[in-house]
Design a protein around this nucleic acid. Structure first.
Lengths: 145, 145
DNA sequence: CTTGAACCTCTAGGGACTGGAGGTCTTATG
DNA sequence: CATAAGACCTCCAGTCCCTAGAGGTTCAAG
């Protein structure tokens, strides 16, 4: 049994954030001690780690919740799980493509930035430049908050 | 001279977001027509594109502001912008690794999901795994009593 | 039994937008 | 030149995902 503080430390999550997740139903209502303090077990740690990693990958809590439904109920009819997985896969692939482009940009920025002045540093031009802009300025939705 | 709508379309930015940027000082106060509508020029477009690309890279507005300050005063050393980019690159690379693992798992689920139940859903294990978790929180700890 | 760290609830704030109400300007067309 | 659609304006409230603080309680080591 972990305290909320231990859970937070193990997952890099602020205590308030864990309580917030409980409040909005991302985390189950924790068991309590007689004095009212939350106590967690391994499965809660796993779930929180999943949520946190999902967030770090840029998924919204809604998308994470959907994935958790798959994990929570492995007897779900296949069609439901499949469509969720399909949709998430599209998202994931788009993100990978974008991140790879961004990685290339960043690497170039760093390589070409040899410690002189900004006047000779193309960091800013590269970031400003549209030529490598792979994002589709049109079929866009809310990705990160 | 562009209207705000044109500027938004060219950069994939919502109009409200542009006005918000002006409000918080990320964008300069735009010139206005006699009727009070904003008109922009090339330099504003460049600046907004810079901001948007920075956001897509995962920079906060604060970090972007820092870089814009460097751009406005090109006698500053490059190292500041470089270290910002370095930090971001690490983040991006971590995200790519995790997303690739998640992609593989989602693909596996879809392939194996041929009309039965979601017998074993390993999505959770994928994202739960701490092995590639390079962030400095308790990756190996037990820090508190 | 005492003490100090860690916990509790509640409320408010913050970053980065996003949407809507209600009204004004621009511009293409008749 | 008149009109009307559509793009613009301000103001403000709401969203998402946390984060901080006040003021009080519990836990566990000594």
């Amino acid at each position: 049994m972990f305290t909320i503080g231990t859970l937070g430390a193990k997952t890099g999550t602020k205590i308030q954030t864990i309580r917030y997740y409980e409040q909005i139903g991302m985390m189950p209502k924790a068991e309590r001690t007689s004095g009212g303090q939350r106590r967690y077990r391994q499965q809660d740690l796993d779930r929180l780690a999943f949520i946190r990693h999902g967030r770090q990958l840029g998924f919204g809590l809604g998308a994470i919740r959907e994935m958790l439904v798959l994990a929570d109920d492995p007897t779900q009819p296949c069609a439901d799980a499949d469509s969720i997985a399909q949709r998430q896969l599209v998202q994931v692939e788009q993100r990978i493509i974008r991140l790879e482009a961004l990685r290339a940009e960043l690497q170039r920025m760093i390589v070409e930035c040899t410690g002189d002045k900004v006047a000779q540093c193309r960091v800013l031009e590269i970031l400003r430049d549209h030529s490598e802009c792979l994002t589709d300025h049109g079929a866009n939705d809310g990705d990160m908050a």
